[in-house]
């Protein structure tokens, strides 16, 4: 009797299902969050209420629990949730569904024979929201809001690996704002910060969602373009160069114009590491600067 009370009072969802996946027990937490009363679901197949659970992964784990008596873990990081319950608006996060960490395990009778499986559902939306915020903070540049160098380098490595497996093309553009020191010296650092922010947001609005644009350091930026060959990257860079050149940035009623130099490189199979691609783009950028700035220079063939 005491355990029955705990079963209903505990702040965790508990479901017990039989070998045919019919619901045997459904605790109050599950009633509240699913809005399905126990008497309505008890004795009925779980899949008729939650058809999305009828997938190979859930079934494989269920069978494994019944056969081997092991546990199955459905972490929120990998699965997000098993049961689509409405999420409380945690920390301003906009998760559509409650993030859940779920465990499935065996329940045995007195003869040690597995008769049922239980599923425990824990609401981890708050933790997931914290994680999401931390993750955002760790991959974004604090000033401009675009990706930071570390994230760029991670994605570059991943794209490099993808290229090795599928030989898909990709290119990068390295950009540097010309004479940026002069902007800072003439108009002050707040203006310099404003230019960096406005410049970054102009670039973000001009590239695809799949492209990764990052502040590489100071006034240097980098753009990773998946599925893009050198000539297409050149066209994009030229478009961006003109767009920036024509734009008038206004800070405290002062009109400011800037230009950018850009170096372009495409990954070649003979490049043994992702850094080689960065080096090529950096050399091209150096050449663009040396040959008069406000230019796009591609890597040497």
């Amino acid at each position: 009797m005491i355990f029955d009370q705990i079963f209903d009072m505990i702040n965790i969802g508990i479901i017990i299902i039989d070998k045919e996946l019919k619901v045997y027990k459904w605790n109050r937490w599950m009633e509240i969050h699913s809005k399905i009363p126990a008497e309505k679901i008890t004795g009925f197949p779980l899949f008729s209420f939650f058809p999305d659970l009828n997938n190979p992964r859930f079934l494989r784990n269920f069978k494994s629990v019944l056969t081997f008596g092991n546990f199955a873990f459905f972490s929120q990081k990998l699965h997000q949730y098993l049961f689509p319950f409405q999420a409380a608006n945690s920390l301003g996060s906009n998760f559509k569904y409650m993030r859940q960490s779920c465990t499935m395990g065996p329940l045995r009778d007195d003869n040690n024979v597995i008769r049922y499986a239980y599923i425990m559902v824990q609401d981890v939306t708050d933790i997931a929201a914290y994680e999401q915020k931390l993750l955002e903070m760790s991959i974004r540049d604090g000033l401009t809001g675009v990706y930071n160098r570390r994230y760029f380098e991670t994605r570059l490595e991943e794209e490099f690996e993808r290229h090795k497996r599928y030989t898909r093309p990709f290119s990068i553009i390295m950009q540097d704002i010309d004479h940026f020191k002069k902007v800072n010296d003439t108009y002050g650092h707040p203006c310099g910060d404003y230019i960096l922010k406005a410049f970054a947001s102009m670039i973000v609005s001009s590239i695809r969602k799949v492209d990764i644009f990052a502040r590489y350091g100071g006034e240097e930026f980098c753009c990773l373009l998946p599925e893009t060959r050198l000539d297409s990257a050149m066209k994009l860079a030229e478009f961006l160069r003109k767009k920036i050149e024509r734009n008038i940035f206004i800070f405290n009623n002062t009109e400011i114009r800037i230009t950018i130099s850009q170096g372009i490189a495409e990954l070649k199979t003979e490049m043994g590491a992702a850094e080689a691609l960065l080096r090529e783009a950096d050399h091209a950028l150096y050449e663009a600067k040396e040959s008069g700035r406000n230019k796009v220079v591609k890597m040497k063939d």
């Binding site: 784990n61 494994s64 081997f68 092991n70 546990f71 045995r108 040690n112």
Partner: peptide, 21 residues
């Protein structure tokens, strides 16, 4: 999880016990 669970689980079954993971 499945491979470890399968092997440990089957040893447990023969030894008439069960474990938590």
């Amino acid at each position: 999880n499945i491979l470890i669970g399968a092997c440990v689980g089957k040893v447990c079954e023969l030894l008439n016990t069960f474990v938590t993971y």
